[in-house]
């Protein structure tokens, strides 16, 4: 299979590989995929207010999966949470020129962004001063 230049570029020089402290209240972590399916992505965001100030990823998967998650971290850095949630897998497909058999890689990257944002929001909710719920 021939890879697009952009996939090769992300594979050879992946952006933002690494981990953030998953226990930090300002960090949201999304882990999607499964080992037996051949891809697992971990995408993490560090949030200040509602803005993503840092993003890191680690991916077990093919070159297109690595490139999709690398690109995703690049794109979400500096965006607000709502802006990040607007990223669609089709944007990733287009940017990386992914062939049809690799579309699932882009879907996984979109899912990883959503999971990381959801995790952050859940944490923020938990740490927010509790409101009294009337029954």
């Amino acid at each position: 299979m021939a890879y697009s230049d952009k996939v090769l570029d992300h594979y050879n020089q992946p952006r933002n590989v690494g981990s953030l402290d998953k226990n930090s209240t300002t960090v949201g972590t999304g882990v999607v995929g499964a080992p037996e399916c051949g891809d697992v992505m971990k995408l993490q965001i560090e949030v200040d207010g509602d803005r993503i100030v840092d993003a890191k990823f680690k991916t077990f998967g093919c070159g297109s999966a690595i490139a999709s998650s690398s690109l995703a971290t690049e794109w979400i850095k500096g965006k607000t949470l709502d802006e990040a949630l607007e990223i669609r897998n089709t944007d990733i497909v287009q940017e990386l020129s992914l062939p049809p058999v690799k579309i699932h890689c882009s879907v996984l990257a979109e899912d990883a962004i959503k999971a990381a944002v959801a995790d952050f929001k859940a944490k923020a909710q938990e740490n927010a001063p509790k409101e009294v719920v009337k029954s």
Partner: peptide
């Protein structure tokens, strides 16, 4: 492996067979 979330989990002592995976195909 340096960019593998699985390898990282194993290094942290997590048993991958006990992890509940989300999604996948």
């Amino acid at each position: 492996r340096a960019m593998s979330p699985l390898y990282e989990m194993v290094q942290e002592g997590i048993d991958l067979s006990t992890v509940k995976w989300q999604g996948g195909h």
